[in-house]
Amino acid sequence: MALKIIEEGLQTSIQDMGRYGYRAAGFSVSGTMDAKAAALANIAVNNDLDQAVLEMSYVGPSITFESDTVIALAGADMAAKINGKPIQLGKPVSVKKADTLQLRTARRGLHCYLAVKGGFDVPDFLGSKSASLKDQLGGSFHGKLKAGDTLPIHFSTKTIDVSWRLSPELFDYISGKQTTIRFLEGRQYHWFSGQSLSDFTSTDYTSTPQSNRMGYRLQGIPLKRQNQEDLVTEAAGFGTIQVPPDGQPIVLMAESQPTGGYPKIGQVIQSDLSALSQIRPGQPIVFQKTTLEDALLEMNNTISELTILQRIAGKKWRELET
C-alpha cells in the first residue's frame, strides 16, 4: 500500500500541521505553507485534519499508485490528470493500482496538496511528519522527495464512486491577482518612519523569486527606520514581517527559524497566511493593518468554516460507506 514518485516536480515534501514543542531547541515548526488547502484536501477524503499530506509547489510531480485508494487535491490548480483524464480540486477521486496522477505547472497560486484516505504511514520525527527542507533532519522522508521515492499509506480503499466535491469557491483566495494581506503591528512598528509606515500600507509590495519555505522576500519602496537601535535577537515565526537594513521586507514562512534579529514591522494574521503562501513571484500584495480582536474573529471564522465542512463531508462519507 503505497504511492511512488515518478517525476519529482519542483519541490514536493510531506507536511502536516507542524512540529511543536521544539522551538526552544532551535527547530522550526515547519508544516504546510497553506494550512487551509491542506485541511480541505484531508476533509474531502474524510481524514482527520492532522494527517500528513503531500505539499507540491509550483511544478507538480507525477505519481503512480501501488494500491487502490481515494485521493483529493486542494490548493493551487496544477491541471491534474489521472491516466490523462482531468480531475477537479476538492473532489474525492478513486484511483486503482498502477494509475498515474500527473500534475503540471500551477496556473494560479503555488502550492497544491494531495491527501490520501487514511493518510501516509511514514515515521514521525520529534512528533511530526513535516519535512524541514532547510535542516533535512529526521530521515528519508524529511527532505524534498525525489523520483523513485515510495511513500507507504495506512490502508487501501476499494474503488468508490463519489458524486460530490468541495465548492470551487473555497479556493477563490488563490486569485493570482493583487491580494490584500492583513497584519498586526509588529513589536518594532514604531521604529519605522511615519512616511515608511504610510508607504507600507499604501503601495504594493511584490514577491520575488528569492522566496522559499523559510521566507518570502518582497520588493517595494524601501522601509526606513527613524532610529538605528540594534535589535537583541528575539522570537519570530510564520507571518512575521521583518525588515533587514536594505529596507525590503521579508515575511517569514512555515520554515521560519524560531528567533530573528531584524526589526518586525508587522505580523500577518493567521487567517491570511494561506492567501499569502499562494502569492507567486511578481504578484503584488497590499498590506492592511488590523487589530488583535479582528484577527481572532477571523481565525474563529476560518476554523468554524472548516469544522462545518468536515462535519458535512463526514456525513457524506458515512452514507457512502454504509
Binding site: Y20, G21, Y22, R23, A24, V232, T233, E234, A235, P258, T259
Partner: peptide
C-alpha cells in the same frame, strides 16, 4: 499552552 521560547532578554 503550547511552548515557551527563551531568548536573551525575552521569553515568548
Amino acid at each position: 499552552f503550547t511552548e515557551a521560547v527563551p531568548a536573551y532578554t525575552t521569553l515568548t
